[in-house]
């Protein structure tokens, strides 16, 4: 790791970290502030939900509509879109661009002519992305906890909340590693932001389809979302070893494969 490169990268990505953190935090807070109104109108909500097509709730990771009326269930349903989808988009956009931008901005010809090994470049940049993901997760988890404490009407499982947040963090780590891996496979120097966003949305869509359609449930295993446990109201809700192994194992495999490929990558300008 090179400290000079790390600190420059960290500073240059600071604004986007700030914007994404503010947007996601604001969305979480704004949505949770509606929880009281949501509870007051539960009969109208139930009537509205009853006319929705089967599976529409699944899109927000809800298996039982009653879950929405507990504060943690309500938080979790919104967390799916804000953190599991939006946060993952941030993770893949940041990670897929951090190495590639040196090529399409033509700064690689300078950076790689300075006394740095490819591994130093790779790990300095990867560390910036992982740190950004840690920061956004800590802040949004803090904001989520604060809103749960403010808007709760009854006790909820704080442990379940932190387990959900940990799953979210694992998912983001996976998408960071996937973004880094994708970026080292790209030969022509061009941004792959759209591809990254598309991939997150497709993987989420695949997961939803597999939940709705029983005959296609197997297809869900293609998506990392399938390995998340979102059933926060289950009293036995915990971190599953298989999920932990899946996310950590796959992330390590992707990131070290990316590093090995980057060490031998031809830089086209």
């Amino acid at each position: 790791m090179n400290r000079n490169l790390f600190s420059r990268e960290f500073r240059s990505n600071g604004l986007s970290l700030l914007i994404w953190t503010l947007v996601i935090t604001a969305l979480i807070m704004a949505t949770m502030s509606l929880y009281g109104v949501f509870l007051e109108n539960n009969s109208k909500i139930l009537a509205m939900v009853s006319i929705l097509p089967e599976g529409a709730l699944q899109f927000k990771g809800i298996s039982n509509v009653d879950d929405l009326f507990s504060v943690l269930g309500f938080y979790s349903a919104n967390n799916v879109i804000y953190m599991l989808v939006l946060g993952s988009i941030y993770a893949i956009v940041l990670s897929s661009g951090i190495l590639l931008k040196e090529e399409y901005n033509k700064t690689a010809e300078y950076l790689l002519a300075w006394p740095l090994t490819r591994s130093e470049v790779f790990f300095s940049k990867a560390l910036v992305v992982y740190l950004n993901i840690l920061i956004i997760n800590v802040i949004t988890t803090g904001a989520g906890y604060l809103t749960l404490e403010i808007f709760k009407k009854e006790p909820y499982s704080v442990d379940a909340f932190f387990i959900l947040s940990f799953y979210t963090f694992l998912l983001h780590i996976f998408f960071v590693s996937l973004g880094l891996f994708m970026s080292v496979l790209v030969k022509k120097p061009r941004p792959i932001t759209t591809m990254g966003i598309g991939l997150v949305l497709i993987l989420y869509f695949v997961f939803t389809i597999s939940n709705i359609t029983e005959s296609l449930s197997w297809i869900g295993y293609v998506s990392p979302y399938k390995f998340l446990s979102l059933d926060v109201l289950d009293p036995k809700y915990s971190i599953e070893w298989i999920s932990l192994l899946y996310f950590i194992g796959l992330s390590l495999l992707l990131v070290f494969s990316a590093q090995r490929l980057y060490r031998r990558k031809d830089i086209y300008l």
Binding site: N2, N4, R8, S12, N105, K106, T107, E109, Y110, A113, W114, P115, L116, L269
Partner: peptide, 26 residues
Amino acid sequence: GYVPSDACPYTSMETDEFLRYCSRYY
């Protein structure tokens, strides 16, 4: 030392800042 054919592309930095940044690699 290397002078690439493309002029300095670190457009978001200032002159002194960029040169100090480069010097820290050595």
